[in-house]
Design a protein around this nucleic acid. Sequence first.
DNA 1: GGATATCTATGCGGAAAGCGAATAGAAGTT
DNA 2: AACTTCTATTCGCTTTCCGCATAGATATCC
Lengths: 295, 295
Amino acid sequence: MNIFQLEVLSTVVERGTFSDAALDLEVSQSAVSRAIAALEAELGVPLLSRGRFGAKLTPVGERVLNHAHKMLDLKEHIDYEVNLEKGLYHSRLRISSFRSAATHLLPASIARFRQQFPSVEVTLSELDPAGVEQSLREGQTDIGLIPLPRSEEFNTIEIARDEYVVLLPKTDSPPPKNLTWEDLSPLSFILFNYAECTSAVKGHWAQCGQSFEVGYVIKEDSTIVSMVAQGLGAAVLPRLAALPIPDGVYVRSLPTRLSRIIGAATLATTPHAPAVKMFLDVLSQKGMFAHQTQA
Amino acid sequence: MNIFQLEVLSTVVERGTFSDAALDLEVSQSAVSRAIAALEAELGVPLLSRGRFGAKLTPVGERVLNHAHKMLDLKEHIDYEVNLEKGLYHSRLRISSFRSAATHLLPASIARFRQQFPSVEVTLSELDPAGVEQSLREGQTDIGLIPLPRSEEFNTIEIARDEYVVLLPKTDSPPPKNLTWEDLSPLSFILFNYAECTSAVKGHWAQCGQSFEVGYVIKEDSTIVSMVAQGLGAAVLPRLAALPIPDGVYVRSLPTRLSRIIGAATLATTPHAPAVKMFLDVLSQKGMFAHQTQA
DNA sequence: GGATATCTATGCGGAAAGCGAATAGAAGTT
DNA sequence: AACTTCTATTCGCTTTCCGCATAGATATCC
């Protein structure tokens, strides 16, 4: 049994006669006749009844065709996999990302992607969000990880949500589990001057009708964590940026939660290469990269 | 692409080497090598990486094999259908049934069965339940429809439940929708002397602590229905036996419901021929005869 | 380093399968 | 009866597939 025979059977049933099926398949009528005869000989049952009226399925032919259709569908899936592989072969994928997403989100995703497509060359550039946008615009980057929302020149999908947390230095008594604005009001804050975090925090405070004292505005997340550990102030920054958090620092949620949305962006006007599409599937856990759930 | 190539691919992966796969498949090692090479040439991608260590799937090979396994499963389904057809061809199915099941239940089932297996010769004998049992014992019947329960010499499956109803003649005022034992106590009843109905009804009355007057005991269900229509009494009999019920007769449920179970029986000691198995599936709406539900 | 073992790939010759063109046979239509 | 339209089969050729034998590569053993 081969795929051609199943295609012949399917087309004969669809067209009604061997002659019309032959035209459709671009082979001779005798090739169609012999393909069907060979299949019937192999299986040992008549699949079609035929005569001057053309050809119609027998009852067992109907049941066989049901399965045959599924096999033809699977052949299309195989062709898809194969064409995907051919499209990806020796292609490349250029990713840009701001630092904490580059450090904490991308490595696992890239590993997973390359497990399936080892021939794709992946590059990862660490840029601030404005740099990521620029690199997308200049065609230097295929996929950029940036905070959302973004302008309409980009197509975006949400990848993760990253909560802003309060880092507090170790003191004689630990801070309460749930902070209030009153707990925070006497504190001096170190803000994270990167990836629009400072403006997000200030906007959030304003929106909550609160005010706070800014002690420092620092670009390096690791420096901020160290300063908190040394008792120089409290900090507010995204959890991913704070990682890894040393023992000498408490982590608490804000009284009113704030999160940033991390998205994957592509340039809206650029058609996606197969590698880009596949990696977007990894990031959003779709298609073959859907999360395995217990059956 | 053909089934043999998919079997080769599957076996190579399972066995680890072309040489071991060749032994398994009872072909030469070079036949295995060329089958794989032909498949890779047709698809245009390498499915296996191989050398002195044997053969391992490439990533695209894994994805292709996933679909290939499903195709091999479908081939087994096709083989099953085909073997089933061969087993059934020119076989026969002998059914015996008591009258109302023969009249009302079997025709649709037999039609459905023969639509799929037109080559099976079906015979239907109408016998009372004792006659059905005897015919099964004597090997003259493959499947018998009889009321349940039955002795352990038979394997049985429940096919339907058939409610005993009260038939009442048309009078100046219609009977209440829900009859009470008081409503029934002044009536004279015509009982159905067939398929253990009389004993079932008497047993039910006794179990409910009631008594009733028996006017007639009649064997013909159509005669009973006519007598009720003529005002000669009320009747208690299974609904299927009463069909078709003319306009001049009211139908009501008993105050305490009574149903008979109609079952399909086969002789416990006899292995089932394929036609018997398939028809039991029709009756119990299993396998390929499962009820279609909206998706 | 050389010999050996074990794996896959390929050449050779023969058998089997598949192709299109042509035609035979059957059945429906005119 | 003649014609049309369908499938099945023959013919001659081409392609594919087979086992046997062997080439080539690589790991193991001495």
